[in-house]
Design a protein around this nucleic acid. Structure first.
Lengths: 125, 125
DNA sequence: TTTACATATTCCCATATGAGCATGTAATGT
DNA sequence: ACATTACATGCTCATATGGGAATATGTAAA
């Protein structure tokens, strides 16, 4: 099998840096394609293709206005990504605490190897 | 140019669903490769290759113990992803408010609203 | 050393990509 | 009707991928 399609989900869609730039640019309000091209310095076909991917996964919305098409980021579609990364928040906080405590303990004494308090673990195997 | 390497950054690395599973599995504490293989039901070479990618971008840490190697998620490396998605939080909250207000207005007036946002829709034009 | 175990790497291959360029299409202006 | 504007799509091509199978590496046990 090859790599999954960029349109398979939001995770794959945002892997491309240009698409992340587009999403940030369109987060505030809707803009026509031409403005994206000018603002980000990309080729027009490239922008259109990126927008197509973003649209396929629901990360942007489109509206026609005369001969131009106005795109806008659908922030709600980014929420699942935020929630997934959030499940790791407690761990990086815990890791920071461990580093901190270890440093303090090292300063206080020579080698105080303490038992690692594991916050909670998913069951094994 | 082709698609960026999976090892180019964390965004590309987590685009692969299996790698996300591995990261979740290794979030609690370190585990040898064999347990990952058993727990996730993947082929051993596949797991090794995914771990290689995750290690290249710093998403996991490795430690040798005898003849096995213990891997653990480096949650801190996920933080930038969390922070990037967070920049959109105010927008999706705003959008939710709009939807809510619209719904309330609709109920008050008893009129039918046509444009219900459909995330899965791949509409044209 | 020989053997068994735990991981890593290599090779092959179907598939997907993104950039550049050309072309198609729809809406507007004259 | 014709030209122009604003996008979208089609094309080729170099490159990266992930799965499977086979193999290599490294460590420990017999």
């Amino acid at each position: 099998m090859a790599r999954a399609s960029t349109t398979s989900d939001a995770f794959n869609a945002i892997a491309e840096p240009r698409r992340r730039e587009i999403l940030s640019y369109l987060a505030g309000d809707e803009r026509p394609v031409g403005e994206i091209v000018a603002a980000l310095g990309l080729e027009q076909p490239s922008v259109s293709k990126h927008l197509r991917v973003l649209r396929d996964v629901g990360l942007v919305r489109m509206r026609c206005q005369g001969r131009q098409k106005l795109y806008r980021t659908n922030a709600e579609a980014i929420r699942p990504l935020h929630e997934w990364t959030e499940t790791f928040e407690r761990y990086w906080q815990h890791q920071l605490n461990r580093v901190k405590e270890l440093a303090e303990a090292t300063v206080r004494q020579g080698s105080t190897v303490l038992k690692t308090p594991n916050p909670n673990q998913k069951e094994k195997s």
